[in-house]
Design a protein around this nucleic acid. Structure first.
Lengths: 204, 204
DNA sequence: TAAATTAGCTTACAGCTGTACGCTTAACGC
DNA sequence: GCGTTAAGCGTACAGCTGTAAGCTAATTTA
């Protein structure tokens, strides 16, 4: 890669990082201005356009990066779970750890999920869909559920996990522990309930 | 009430209504400006301050009104359920009906739940808490669950309902039907699962 | 090596924002 | 009836926004 392309990439990263760094419980992506981001990245406002068409394009890039981080997390969790132990417990713990180390990645996903930009919502939905379908596939195989039931179960579980994630973002570690325990309990409810429904439908 | 107070109340309502009317899938409360709201309500921007200290105060008023609408809905649903039939099914249908007739009330609640203003999040949390504790109390009584389990169950159910509500906001009627059916299925999972966990803990 | 490309800069502008200040006018309390 | 109160208005201003236009200087290409 040439010197020029390298420098361009570096500045682009500076912009993305600047945007991530400005996110917090009090500051959503949509409240950031192009000028603020450029300022934080130490470039002139108008230079922003050399990298992104507008703030939306930056935001979608961030959502995609966030999604990538999520998928990497899933793999990590699955690996750990293979060593034995409660899959639910291990997954929840992994989720909480990643949430703790990348809070702003989650902020943009959790906030824009119910945001006002349709492309954003679609992008987040796409990322969450990865979660759901992988989990549904997993349950379908391991527990021999029928597809429809597996899908509903997976969706419910992912919903509960993400909702807990949103709540956890503003919590201290001790509060998070309680939350995690309750989440595990809720996930077990769903799992048990799905089992019962499954037996009913298949009449055995 | 005097002529003066009456007129003031009327203008205040015009402001609240103007703000509600400007909400949509593409427009969140936090993206509204004081001037826009004043314009829509046909008053001068500076007159806004005769009624609210700032936009935040307006927003909190709206959240409170939304919460009120929710609680009225709950009562309506409970009355219907008393006439017999599946409590879950009836509650979901009621919820969807109210969602359909007051979409913007839900928009502000659903969006500000994960918003950037702490007072807003707290206000929404308070409203949702009403839901959870009433439901927990109901289950504790009807199904003789222990408090901790009842609480976790209620929280899970409310989470699932609100999440489905957010998704339903941008859907056509036919899509909503599918969503509602899946939601019912998920709620039954949670209910069944809680039952099983309950029996386990109490060893009978 | 000369020409072309391009990341980043400075300057500039129109449009929006919240809100301070002071006025008018109609209802209120005495 | 008369002084007081207050809802609503118009004007004004500073500060922010996105972005258009054109320049500079360094890299790339031919």
């Amino acid at each position: 890669m040439g010197v020029r392309a390298q420098q361009k990439e570096k500045t682009r990263r500076a912009l993305v990082d600047a945007a991530f760094n400005q996110l917090s419980a009090e500051r959503s992506f949509s409240s950031l201005s192009l000028r603020e981001v450029a300022r934080e990245a130490n470039i002139a406002p108008t230079s922003f356009y050399r990298h992104f068409k507008d703030m939306n394009e930056l935001g979608l890039t961030m959502v995609d990066e966030g999604g990538l981080a999520l998928r990497q997390m899933m793999r990590k969790g699955r690996q750990r779970a293979e060593a034995g132990g409660s899959v639910i417990r291990i997954s929840v713990d992994t989720f909480m750890e990643v949430l703790d180390s990348n809070p702003n990645v989650f902020r943009i996903l959790l906030h824009e999920r119910s945001g006002t930009s349709a492309p954003f919502r679609a992008a987040v939905a796409r990322e969450i869909e990865h979660f759901i379908s992988e989990l549904a596939h997993y349950t379908e195989e391991k527990a021999h559920r029928n597809p429809e039931l597996a899908r509903a179960q997976a969706e419910a579980m992912v919903t509960l996990v993400f909702n807990a994630g949103a709540a956890a973002l503003d919590m201290k570690k001790s509060e998070r522990k309680v939350l995690a325990d309750q989440l595990v309990m809720q996930l077990r409810m769903v799992a048990k309930g799905a089992e019962v429904l499954h037996q009913k439908v298949d009449n055995r």
